[in-house]
């Protein structure tokens, strides 16, 4: 049995729900789809994907919708939960069971943590977590892993530098945990003191014997990094404006800093970008964040096709 067929009927709620082998199967399928899209253009014909977004995220929703449409499937959207039955007090369980009666697959995004888990328990069809509160956004992790796997050719023996808000950034936490499952991984954690990686996560790294170095400035890490993962440093995370203004510039990737980065390194970002990567960096071949977003669509296509069992 192909590993991706083992995903049929399952839900994808947490990034670590899938084993490294299952991720690898998705990457292989995503590569097939990317190189021979015509072979998959009708893979999901007659299938319906419902996207239930209880908070706005145009980017994530578009990525899922593009993925489903490119597989020949169709999409049903609740774009504005304010005008839907949810605003009239319907329970999430009832909404899910109703929608599951119409659709073959549900993508849910919700401000509450654990909402996707709840949805999966009530849904007779597979559920994909499109982000629940500050906790999980597993298809971003799928996208990030696939990008590294594709552009670096491997997920092991890498030095990955995370830069910016390491305290609240769920994409960072999730990718970091997923990478820990591969051998020879080393981390540079670049952040202001206020936005350090949370202690429980640092303890997890220690318990697993993963090498990591924390630092406040990126200069030291850049020459050694295979991947530089940038995140937004948001003003509202700081106690006062002075600290924010003082620190902000340390976490901006400028063309000057880019020169310190190795020639084969990758600069990644979950997007949207604000000021943390200078526009002048975009034309550099190492800046792969828009490529990353596009690869994310192929990764989602592989995921959708596998959960629906059409491959």
């Amino acid at each position: 049995m192909r590993a991706e067929t083992a995903l049929k009927g399952r839900s994808f709620i947490n990034a670590l729900d899938l084993s490294p082998e299952e991720y690898e199967a998705l990457f292989r399928l995503a590569e097939e789809i990317r190189h021979r899209p015509g072979d998959f253009a009708e893979a999901c014909k007659g299938k319906l994907l419902a996207t239930l977004f209880f908070e706005p995220s145009t980017r994530t929703r578009l990525s899922f919708e593009a993925a489903m449409l490119r597989l020949g499937g169709q999409v049903l959207s609740v774009a504005d939960p304010q005008t839907s039955s949810v605003a009239k007090g319907e329970s999430l369980a009832d909404t899910i069971r109703t929608v599951a009666g119409y659709a073959d697959l549900i993508v849910i995004r919700h401000p509450k943590e654990g909402a996707a888990q709840l949805a999966a328990r009530y849904s007779p069809v597979p559920v994909i977590n499109g982000g629940d509160g500050a906790r999980e956004h597993p298809t971003q992790t799928l996208t990030d892993l696939y990008t590294i796997r594709t552009l670096k050719g491997r997920l092991s023996h890498l030095t990955v530098a995370f830069c910016g808000d390491l305290r609240y950034g769920r994409t960072v936490h999730s990718l970091l945990r997923a990478l820990c499952r591969y051998p020879g991984i080393r981390f540079f954690l670049i952040s202001p003191e206020e936005l350090r990686l949370p202690e429980p996560l640092r303890e997890e790294l220690q318990a697993q014997g993963i090498a990591y170095h924390e630092m406040e400035q990126m200069e030291e890490a850049l020459p050694q990094a295979d991947v530089l993962y940038m995140t937004r440093v948001q003003k509202e995370r700081f106690f006062n404006e002075e600290d924010y203004l003082r620190l902000r510039d340390f976490y901006v990737l400028t063309p000057e800093r880019l020169q310190l980065l190795r020639g084969d390194a990758l600069v990644m970002h979950p997007l949207p970008r604000v000021t943390e990567i200078a526009y002048a960096v975009d034309s550099d071949p190492r800046a792969v964040y828009f490529q990353q977003a596009r690869l994310g669509m192929y990764a989602r296509m592989a995921l959708i096709a596998s959960l629906l069992g059409v491959v």
Partner: peptide, 13 residues
């Protein structure tokens, strides 16, 4: 005890 947990609002769970 997490106020952001879905079980805090969907109390039938």
């Amino acid at each position: 005890r997490n106020p952001r947990c879905i079980t805090s609002t969907e109390t039938y769970v």
